[in-house]
Write a protein that binds this DNA or RNA. Structure first.
Lengths: 128, 128
DNA sequence: GCAATAACTAACAAAATTGTTAGTCGACAA
DNA sequence: TTGTCGACTAACAATTTTGTTAGTTATTGC
């Protein structure tokens, strides 16, 4: 998948070293990831529940996104006891849970400006 | 650039309508964007200052990222008075400034887990 | 006149992400 | 026994993002 000799890859590494901010963003910036985290947080913690919430996503893509979230330890898989065949649910780790309020502030940030909050250039006193 | 008939585009639109969170993430998820916002915030507000901070970025790519940030009203361009030919500086808007603390919390989030904070599955009491 | 600097753009190529098609496996239901 | 469900995977194609190469414009310094 990743070409470890590419400039693209090297630049990603470089940015991660400049600040964790950049790796954090790359962890949550897949097409469906933030929304998946949020739905799991709200209780849609099974594969098929997520599919119902996201009717446009294909199974393949959902599985892939979940796997990447698992790779970054934002969630883990757990067996649902007493189901045959064994069902699987997704549980946010503490790392994933800590992300939720940050996603909420991003949400608010997007919302207030989308709803028409005035935008202007920073301090006018800035004549450097 | 964008194919407005693609599934990919439709899915992006769909997610934006589910929650502003998703459009917010797409605004900041370009390779260099968060870091550029941060450097401008810290005072590296000229094209060439940003190039010095990010030696690996090419001019073309930097110009492209700045243009996208401008499109999302996170920053604006301003002429630097008294320079010939007219210099240009980048100023964060209030929208861009509001983003900074969110980027800081993402940074902290990334950092504490990268530094070894223990990760475990959410509440064990969750037997749903 | 020749090179250099600041701040770009266009066209193209490389790489990465996203989406599609098809198939798996075990258990139950009709 | 054919079909369905839940939870996937592999291979491939479409789309998007990122990076590269080669310009541009105006002006000052040599």
């Amino acid at each position: 998948m990743r070409k470890e000799q590419s400039t693209n890859y090297a630049n990603e590494q470089f940015l991660s070293q400049v600040c964790e901010r950049n790796s954090a963003i790359s962890m949550i910036s897949g097409r469906w990831k933030a929304q998946i985290v949020y739905y799991i947080y709200e209780g849609s913690n099974r594969f098929n529940l997520l599919q119902k919430k996201l009717p446009k996503i294909s199974e393949t893509v959902l599985a892939r996104q979940l796997k990447e979230l698992e790779k970054h330890a934002i969630l883990v898989k757990a067996e649902v006891p007493g189901t045959v065949p064994t069902g699987i649910k997704y549980i946010l780790t503490n790392k994933g849970l800590d992300l939720v309020p940050i996603l909420e502030s991003l949400c608010d940030w997007g919302k207030i400006y989308a709803e028409g909050k005035e935008i202007f250039a920073g301090t006018e006193a800035e004549n450097a």
